[in-house]
Amino acid sequence: MPIICANELCKTFPTPDGTLKNAVDKISLRIERGTIYGLLGPNGAGKTTTLRMLSGLVKPTSGEAIINGNNVADDPFAVKHDIGFLTANTGLYQRLSPRETLYYFARLYALPREQIERRVEHLIDWLDMHTFADLRCGALSTGQKQRTSIARALVGDPVVLIMDEPTLGLDVLSNRIILDFIRREHDEGKTIILSTHYLDEAESLCDRFGLMHEGQLMAEGTLAELQADTGEHKLSSIFLKLFSDVRGEDENGRL
């Protein structure tokens, strides 16, 4: 059984003008253990809402999500133990240091006492955080904050890592550290689902791709499958082709 299973997830929001908008429209996903899955799409395609539904932050209007055998709606507690969630905005406690933040979240995950210290110090090592681990988070740079956030998401040693725009707005160096880290986690057997709109980055990192547009999954598969389907070589060209196909259909439909 796939470690992440989404069955026709839908999320409907009312818009200010009183109509309803399907932010996510019947998304179904099957992600096998040990995959890096890239959820791609332009802004507003529904990537964040999908990830939030997978992690149990948002209740789906209909449909269900099952992670590591637990239904998100029925057993949110078990699901939250299994996932690490990295939000798009680097929300950190300004008045705590990265080390304190990590200890705090490790305790919230109810890790055994001796394991907490080991885990936190490992993460600080891996993400090269020694230089700033004891400064207040409020004083950190964007890259340092993002590394702290990633460490925070991983502190509970989750089997599934859900990352919303992990490299948004980072400099080359931080970007490199984070991408290396994602690969390393992957090598350790973790399943990772990440959303991004940097297609080149995704192409080099992910095993499978889901291309989202206006709440729907336009196409899904490995790079080779997508290349075969569209006849394009690069992921960005594949995306543009699919995108123009959808719009074309729309216009034909209207005609």
Partner: peptide, 14 residues
């Protein structure tokens, strides 16, 4: 407002 609530809610804490 600071965006930290989301990270807290996603933890396995009732």
């Amino acid at each position: 407002e600071r965006g930290t609530l989301e990270t807290l809610i996603v933890c396995p804490v009732p």
